[in-house]
């Protein structure tokens, strides 16, 4: 898994490439925490090149969403969720907890 992030004026865009499982999710969490610990709570997660995500990744997203939505200070949105990952998120009832976008610019513009 590879994570890279880009800071925009109103939000942060984080790109995750590869596979997120119990082995790599801690690194994904750290990347998200790095943004929130800097007082930034508007985050778009670009999943274009994400091949796989287990519940370990779902948990990282959920914890961050809770943190970001507190005091209405922001939120996490998902961009270009691959179909298999989307199906798993649906099964876990996660699709109602995250706005999704088909385009990263659109997601960034949403904030």
């Amino acid at each position: 898994m590879e994570v890279s992030s880009q800071e925009f004026k109103h939000c942060d865009l984080i790109r995750v490439k590869g596979r997120v499982d119990s082995s790599t999710a801690p690194e994904f969490s750290r990347a998200l925490e790095k943004i929130t610990s800097g007082g930034r709570y508007k985050i778009a997660v670009d999943m274009t090149d994400m091949e796989y995500m287990s519940s370990a990744g779902f948990r990282a997203l959920l914890a961050t969403q809770r943190n970001c939505k507190r005091y209405n200070r922001g939120e996490v949105v998902l961009v270009k969720v691959p179909v298999r990952i989307k199906e798993a998120l649906e099964l876990a009832g996660f699709t109602e907890l995250f706005k999704t976008f088909d385009d990263s610019l659109e997601a960034v513009g949403n904030f």
Binding site: S54, S55, R59, L62, K69, L91, A92, G93, F94, L97
Partner: peptide
């Protein structure tokens, strides 16, 4: 409970839930 709102959503047990569903 995979239908409850964000603040009540459980962090644990999700893996087993998925296993059973899949």
């Amino acid at each position: 409970d995979v239908t409850t709102n964000l603040s009540k959503r459980q962090i644990g047990g999700l893996g087993i839930y998925l296993m059973r569903k899949l």
